[in-house]
Each structure stands twice: as structure tokens, then as C-alpha cells.
């Protein structure tokens, strides 16, 4: 039973990690608390439902179209909302409130179009596989494989490619990046596209696994914001560590207490970290002048 709970926790962590990577990437580069990330996640899941179930497109085409819609939605929030605010030097609180507004608008639009009830993409019982006493569904195995592949590609992109290094440079020191001639607008668009693609992939996995309702993005974005903070804001891989930790703790909570305690425990952990280790689990060693 313990191994099964750990496995479930790690698989939940895989899904959280993808959203958290995107959320963390956008936050670190732009300092925007992109709450509308939850709407991107929800919209991609509903787009899959629409293409695959409502109008019966082939699976592959439905997945590609859903990912494109999610990514374009994220890019649109940057183009029409955040960047104009950034140019006007609006405080980050304004961007956050605007983001909340976009989230609420999109979620209500989705509810109006598709209804509030839960939509299931894969009805019926799923095929299961057993490994060393752990039972996994086919979708859980897909979730794990997708996470591993996407994370590896993302990691190599960020560490080894020129564009990845430009994103890391912008997130570290935007003033110097501008002074060196970086086109900040293009780099921000790339960040929003990449972050939204990650959220969309996660939204699709959740849609396949447990189904969707218009509010799935709310808890996802909150859990992922916590994952970014406890994992470590400085290092983008920290979000993955935070997501796995939360996935594990939430599943242990469900096992030992009840699902109703999940969010209380999540925020309890956040408070503990803010009090005891505000820099998160992973952080760079810093010189005194950097801290001040």
C-alpha cells in the first residue's frame, strides 16, 4: 500500500511539475504571477474534448490542435495584456489582478460553452499494469513517460541552447539583458509560448486521466505556485522538486486523512517554508551583496 501511495504521489507530481515549470518560467522571467496559466491549462483540456469527442477528429490531430490553442492563448495574454502593462511600467500587482480577470473570464466562457458538469474523455475502466506490487493505469504510464521526455527536452533546451541561455539571462538580470541589446519582447513571447505549452500538455494529461470541469485550473495553478516557492524560485528545476514533494504529501494525506485535507496541508507546507526556508529547497549560494 505504501509503495502504491508513493507511486500515485510521484505520478501526480509529474502532472503538477509540467504546470509548475511553465508557471515558474513565466514568473522568473517576467515577475508576473500568471494566474491565467490555470485558464490556459483548462482551455487546452477543453480544446481536446471539443476536437476529440464533440467533432470526432483523430486523436493525434486533436492533441496537436489543443496544444496550439493553449499555447496561442498564453501568447495572447502576453501580447494584449501583460506587455502593454509592462511598457506602461504598471506595478506587478496590476498584472496579477488583470491575470485574475482573464482567468475568470475564460473559465466562465468555457462553462457557458461546455457546461459546468464533469466531462470524461476516456469512459469506462482503463487497462492496468502491475509492477512489483504497484498497479498503474495506462494513462498514468503515459503521464510518466510524457513528463520524463518533456522535462529532459526542456532541461537540455534551457541549459544548452542559445535561446534557453537568453531566457535564463533575462530572468536573472533584465536590465543587463536590455543593455546588451536583447529584444525583450521576443524573448518574453518565447517564454509565454513555452510555459503555456507545458501547461497545455499537463491539461491534456489530466483530461485523459480523470476528466475535466471548468474549475480544474484553479487548484492546479495554486498548487504549482506553491511548488515553485518551496522548490526554489532561483532554479527552474526547483519547481519539479516542489511538485513531486506536493504530489507525495497530498497522496499521503488522502491515504491517512481525507482528500478534504489536501489543500490545507499544501498551504500549511507553504507557510512552513516561508517561515523556515523562504528561498526554497534549491537555491544558489549567494554573496552578501546579492542578498542585500
Amino acid at each position: 500500500m505504501t509503495l502504491q501511495v508513493i507511486a500515485n504521489g510521484l505520478i501526480a507530481g509529474c502532472v503538477y511539475a509540467l504546470v509548475a515549470l511553465g508557471f515558474g518560467l513565466i514568473y522568473k522571467t517576467t515577475r508576473i504571477l500568471h494566474f491565467a496559466h490555470g485558464a490556459v491549462y483548462t482551455a487546452a483540456a477543453y480544446a481536446l474534448y471539443f476536437f476529440l469527442i464533440s467533432i470526432s477528429f483523430p486523436v493525434f490531430i486533436s492533441i496537436v490542435l489543443a496544444l496550439i490553442i493553449g499555447t496561442l492563448l498564453g501568447i495572447s495574454t502576453e501580447t494584449f495584456l501583460y506587455y502593454p502593462l509592462h511598457r506602461k511600467k504598471a506595478p506587478y500587482a496590476i498584472s496579477f489582478i488583470a491575470s485574475m480577470g482573464i482567468y475568470l473570464f475564460l473559465v466562465n466562457l468555457i462553462a457557458m460553452l461546455f457546461g459546468n458538469e464533469v466531462k470524461i474523455i476516456q469512459p469506462g475502466l482503463e487497462k492496468t499494469y502491475q509492477f512489483a506490487g504497484i498497479i498503474l493505469t495506462r494513462t498514468q504510464i503515459i503521464e510518466t513517460i510524457v513528463f520524463v521526455v518533456v522535462f529532459l527536452v526542456f532541461y537540455i533546451f534551457m541549459k544548452k541552447s542559445g535561446l534557453g541561455r537568453l531566457i535564463r539571462a533575462l530572468s536573472n538580470n533584465p536590465e543587463l539583458a536590455t543593455v546588451l541589446g536583447m529584444n525583450i519582447r521576443k524573448t518574453r513571447l518565447l517564454v509565454f509560448g513555452l510555459g503555456s505549452l507545458l501547461a497545455s500538455i499537463s491539461g491534456l494529461l489530466v483530461a485523459l486521466d480523470i476528466g475535466i470541469d471548468p474549475n480544474i485550473g484553479f487548484s492546479a495553478v495554486f498548487v504549482c505556485a506553491v511548488a515553485v516557492i518551496i522548490g526554489g524560485i532561483d532554479i527552474f528545476e526547483g519547481a519539479v522538486l516542489g511538485a513531486f514533494l506536493l504530489g507525495l504529501i497530498q497522496n499521503i494525506t488522502i491515504w491517512k486523512l481525507s482528500a478534504r485535507w489536501q489543500e490545507a496541508i499544501t498551504f500549511g507546507i507553504l507557510i512552513l517554508f516561508l517561515l523556515l526556508r523562504p528561498q526554497g529547497i534549491l537555491s544558489y549560494k549567494k554573496r552578501m551583496e546579492e542578498i542585500s
Binding site: R165, L166, R168, S171, N172, N173, L180, G181, D234, I235
Partner: peptide
């Protein structure tokens, strides 16, 4: 333009810092 205090990308290695202009 050299910013007062000598700004660098503190999270990147020295070599990555030097290569940023080429990526731009």
C-alpha cells in the same frame, strides 16, 4: 553601456555570461 557596480548574470557561468552577446 557599463552599468554602475558591474552588472553580470549571477546565475550563469562566466563562459555563459561572455557568450550572451553572441546569442543576442
Amino acid at each position: 553601456y557599463f552599468i554602475q557596480g558591474g552588472e553580470v548574470f549571477t546565475n550563469l557561468t562566466v563562459m555563459e555570461n561572455l557568450l550572451i552577446p553572441q546569442y543576442i
